[in-house]
Nucleic acid binder design. Structure first.
Length: 357
DNA sequence: TCTGGGGTCCTAGGACCC
DNA sequence: TCTGGGGTCCTAGGACCC
């Protein structure tokens, strides 16, 4: 093709900058430009809480997501620490998604602060700029936009655009930009998989993209193996789904400020968690197939045991009985720092979203 | 840096049946 | 009697992501 770009289907990955902190700053503008750390109950002197989001000013001091709040306090003693306020972030997220939908292109929501947009255009950069501008004008929040000819490329492009910029990755630039980077830079490859790949001499994205497909399948299984190679070549997902997301499970887990020790204490806590997830189940209008209980001891040993229900149900007594069966599969010999309860959900039957009489 | 919470998907292996 | 499978269901565990 000579000269101008033809119209093509482009994927846009929209990612809000420091989302939780940005929402806090929006309602407290005097915090702008400061080191702000959001997480836990906002008290950085209490243990067993971590950073959810830190502003770029806090990050410059060494604070990052997942870091214990107490460590963040040491790194940034003058930072403003705020509690995590989920309802407010959900509302802000909904505002942003509404702005994205206002363009008339399909929008696929990926959590609070991310979405994919798909559009047929000959000028993706102009649309990306328009997305950033309209989000900022209508919500006061800023975002980066990654442009790609696949979702994977768009997603990975965003990291080069942050904060607040636009970056494009496509088949023509993929190898040049990504080829010599470590495999862990790929979306979906974490430290474990990177280490396993390194054992086979696969270190860079180019190494993985040119690795032997059969060998990868033998090492990682028939789905993950070829999937890794595909990912290293930039992926192949090009569909933006507006179908509402179907939840597969509801769960709640709590790290207790002080360890639980007695069996009665533990049982009581599990049943309290079950009451909470049961409420979530009813709110979803779904039925549960399994009850799973997670235990984490003070030594960080973490295991999950599940018990299948005889039939899918919302009946609290039946769920309690299965929760106790799952819990009974543990021989708990150490203090417990975390308990969790998860309900796996049956597929929603079409047309039966509400329980009939 | 003593390590949150809410999710999803894939794989391995045992049990059981044919 | 010995041997070889395949298929399915189920649970546990691992890995990853935001």
């Amino acid at each position: 093709m000579a000269g101008e770009d033809a119209k093509a289907w482009w994927l846009f990955h929209v990612d809000l900058d420091q989302f939780l902190a940005a929402v806090e700053i929006r309602r407290r503008p005097e915090l702008a430009g400061k080191a702000v750390v959001v997480g836990g109950d906002g008290d950085p002197t209490r243990p067993r809480q971590v950073v959810a989001t830190a502003t770029y000013e806090a990050r410059a001091l060494g604070v990052h997501s997942g870091m214990p709040l107490r460590a963040a306090l040491r790194k940034a003693p003058d930072a403003v620490f705020l509690p995590s306020d989920h309802p407010t972030y959900e509302a802000a997220s909904a505002e942003v998604m509404a702005v994205l939908r206002s363009f008339g292109h399909p929008v696929e929501v990926w959590g609070w602060d991310e979405a994919f947009v798909g559009a047929e255009t000959d000028d993706p950069h102009t649309l990306a700029d328009a997305i950033r501008a309209r989000v900022r004008e209508e919500t006061g929040l800023t975002c980066a936009v990654g442009i790609g000819d696949t979702k994977e490329r768009a997603k990975m492009a965003t990291s080069f655009g942050k904060p607040g910029g636009v970056f494009r990755l496509d088949r023509d630039t993929w190898w040049q930009v990504m080829g010599e980077r470590p495999v862990a830079d790929l979306w979906g490859i974490g430290t474990k998989t990177a280490a396993r790949l390194a054992e086979h001499g696969i270190v860079t994205v180019a190494d993985l993209g040119h690795a032997d497909a059969d060998a990868l399948a033998a090492w990682f299984g028939p789905t993950i193996g070829p999937g890794l190679r595909r990912l290293a070549r930039g992926g192949a997902s090009r569909t933006v789904t507006t179908e509402p997301w179907v939840r597969r499970s509801v769960s709640k887990q709590v790290t207790y400020p002080t360890d639980l020790t007695s069996r009665e204490e533990i049982t009581t806590a599990v049943l309290a968690l079950l009451d909470d997830v049961h409420a979530l189940l009813l709110a979803e209008g779904r039925v549960a197939t399994h009850v799973a209980v997670t235990v984490r001891t003070a030594s960080f040993w973490t295991r999950t045991r599940a018990a299948k229900l005889p039939e899918p149900t919302t009946d609290l007594a039946a769920l309690r009985e299965r929760a106790e069966v799952a819990l009974a599969r543990f021989e708990i010999e150490r203090p417990v720092r975390l308990l969790g309860v998860r309900l796996d959900l049956a597929e929603p039957s079409p047309g039966a979203a509400t329980v009939a009489g």
